[in-house]
């Protein structure tokens, strides 16, 4: 489902190198909140080791975990699409090492260089499409007792 979404597969080497020049090495202990729903999406990450979970706050309940992201995967795409606001929360499930990027700086590079901008847009588009496909498959409840769907 995600072969096209890891950084090495998705970005041509030249654009990848440019992006990586803006990467900061960061590390989060387990339990760190990376971002919260509704806040400004001003950064994003690529996971090197460990697992980040995406969750939704439910009043009176424990946060519902929607998906987990691991090695090579992009954490956050709302920074690329207006209004640049997170629609989920994210938390380090384990000790996480990641590359962190400043969203505003990358957006500016995209605006200045259409070639780079298109490459980034295609990469983020892949990630979004991929998560949509995964969400749809999960919506089927495949592993239910009769597979999914009703008999004809």
């Amino acid at each position: 489902m995600t072969s096209a979404t890891t950084l090495t597969a998705a970005l041509p080497a030249e654009h990848r190198a440019r992006l990586m020049r803006h990467a900061r090495e960061v590390s989060f202990p387990a339990g760190t909140r990376l971002f919260e729903e509704g806040r400004r999406a001003d950064r994003f990450w690529i996971v090197r080791t460990g697992t980040v979970v995406l969750d939704v706050h439910v009043p009176g309940r424990r946060a519902a975990v929607i998906e987990s992201l691991g090695h090579g995967e992009l954490v956050g795409w709302s920074w690329h699409i207006p209004p640049y606001v997170w629609h989920l929360g994210a938390e380090a499930m384990s000790q996480v090492r990641a590359w962190e990027f400043d969203a505003e700086a990358v957006r500016e590079m995209c605006a200045r260089d259409p070639g780079f901008g298109r490459a980034i847009a295609v990469w983020v588009g892949h990630v979004v499409a991929d998560r949509l496909r995964a969400a749809r498959i999960r919506l089927l409840d495949l592993y239910g007792p009769y597979g999914s769907g009703s008999p004809p």
């Binding site: 489902m1 995600t2 072969s3 890891t6 697992t51 979970v53 975990v65 929607i66 998906e67 987990s68 691991g70 090695h71 090579g72 995967e73 995964a134 498959i137 999960r138 089927l140 495949l142 592993y143 597979g147 999914s148």
Partner: peptide, 28 residues
């Protein structure tokens, strides 16, 4: 993890040209 089984492939270690896969589950 949370998600579909195929997302786990990113963490797997294999050389595609020299790999045999064994798959069983619902047809979808």
């Amino acid at each position: 993890r949370v998600g579909v089984v195929t997302t786990l492939l990113n963490g797997a270690r294999f050389t595609p040209r020299n790999t045999t896969a064994f798959v069983c589950g619902p047809e979808v």
